[in-house]
């Protein structure tokens, strides 16, 4: 019996083998980095990606125009999409058959389409189909992004609603609340606390999808980050704008992640204002 727990062949225990294995991983990682650094042409990289003059020329319009437009387009799309998604989720959970079917069909349809196609359809399809009915640019982007986001968010919200314990609804009903009242005051607020992480995910995805607005074409003042970066790339013949624009996306998304973590700590499961078992 005792032999089984002793060091086996090679005289190494399980712990020692794990240690050696990890050492090998570090060596490989280091080797990849070194080889990459040696092979890369640092002068060219510096010139193309880190051209300070080009970077300086991008300011302030990269912030005041491009970043701002990206934020505005994303906010519009997210707000519209969230509203539609909530409606779709409630429809999908409804006891009324046609509501469930319509919602299910919508979700399956738009979840399966590339966002680019939705942008093209809304941007060029609607004005063609309804003659004289011209959506302005902001509205087009809001609809396109909203439609794309809502199909995903509807499923997230539905999962959140189902994750709220049934006793919560029963307690609310036993106090005389109607089903609708109980859903809005008790179930949905708790569902949103549960789905905060995946919802932040959706918001970040939409931030990046807002770059698809380029297919609609835009004047300089209406360009969002990616289109702005592409134009600058052509006019300066440098990769630096791509780097700057990329950093701008992180300037949007990283604070969102931090905000999500804060909110989660405050409201999420186990948080001060969230659910959790009694002490």
């Amino acid at each position: 019996m005792a032999e089984a727990t002793r060091p086996a062949k090679g005289g190494m225990s399980k712990r020692q083998r794990a240690k050696v294995g990890r050492g090998v991983q570090y060596v490989i990682l280091l080797a990849v980095v070194v080889v990459g650094a040696v092979l890369a042409d640092w002068n060219k990289i510096g010139e193309y990606f880190f051209n300070v003059e080009v970077a300086r020329a991008l300011f302030p319009s990269v912030i005041t125009t491009a970043l701002l437009n990206t934020v505005v387009y994303t906010a519009l799309g997210f707000a519209f999409g969230l509203g539609v998604a909530l409606l779709l989720a409630l429809m999908r959970l409804s006891s009324v058959g046609p509501y469930r079917w319509i919602s299910g069909a919508y979700i399956e349809f738009f979840r399966g389409l590339p966002a680019l196609l939705v942008f093209l359809s809304v941007g060029f399809g609607i004005p063609t189909a309804f003659e004289g009915f011209n959506l302005n640019r902001n509205l087009t982007i809001m609809l396109s992004l909203g439609i794309v986001g809502s199909a995903y968010m509807a499923e997230t919200i539905r999962a959140g609603i189902k994750a709220v314990p049934g006793g919560q609804l029963e307690a609310a009903r036993s106090l005389g609340m109607s089903h609708a009242r109980a859903t809005t005051t008790v179930v949905i607020p708790q569902a949103f606390r549960i789905i905060l992480p995946p919802l932040t995910n959706e918001l970040i995805l939409l931030t990046k999808d807002s770059s698809l607005a380029f297919v609609l074409g835009a004047t300089l003042a209406k360009q969002e980050l990616t289109q702005f970066g592409r134009s600058a790339l052509t006019s300066y013949e440098s990769m630096t704008p791509i780097l700057v624009v990329g950093l701008c996306y992180l300037v949007i998304t990283i604070p969102l992640s931090v905000l999500q973590q804060r909110l989660e700590r405050r409201f999420g499961p186990g948080g001060k204002g969230g659910q959790g078992s009694g002490a």
Partner: peptide
Amino acid sequence: QQFNLFTH
């Protein structure tokens, strides 16, 4: 039995 207080 499970109290069912509104946790939020």
